[in-house]
Amino acid sequence: MKIGVLASQGAFIEHIKTLNKLDTEAVPVRLPGELKGLDGLIFPGGESTTISRLMASYKLVDEIDALAKDGMPVFGTCAGMILMAREISGNTTQSLGLMDITVKRNAFGRQVDSFETQLKIQVLGEKPFPAVFIRAPIIESYAEDVEVLARLDDDTPVAARQGKMLGAAFHPELTDDLRFHEYFLKMASGKLN
């Protein structure tokens, strides 16, 4: 399997390293030509406004949109999930609308409110998942066929899946826990319903 990681800006190397640990080939994607022959794509964390502008200026948006409609699995973390959302509340940043969720940017406040916690994520097994939230978004609302995978103690949804689209408000790529990426690879290879 070969997974592309959008490398316009942000923590894309961390995703590439995590995929390599799972014996998966991973390549950085900065231009449309680099999308050829991919079995999946990851939108990393970074600044969503920055990434969105860089994607727009190099015509990545239409290409990715077409590939996703064609069934290419996509996984976004933090800013990546923002870019996948149907809607970003109170913001004009252009998102791709790959997933029927509405997200709120910087939902916890500024950097001093960034935090680490342990999340119960049923689909990853019993062991809690270490979640790093950095100026993180939340999922405000979602369509009926969106499956919420993780919630905070106050019930706020922070990870979700819809078909072959996967999003997390936190950063699995900043931890040594490989289960979230493993889940995405299973999804990408059609081993999950």
């Binding site: 490398a7 316009s8 800006q9 190397i13 600044e47 933090c78 960034s114 950095i134 100026r135």
Partner: peptide
């Protein structure tokens, strides 16, 4: 982690 998110920028 925030610095990691700023990379490439």
């Amino acid at each position: 982690g925030l610095a990691q998110m700023l990379k490439g920028g």
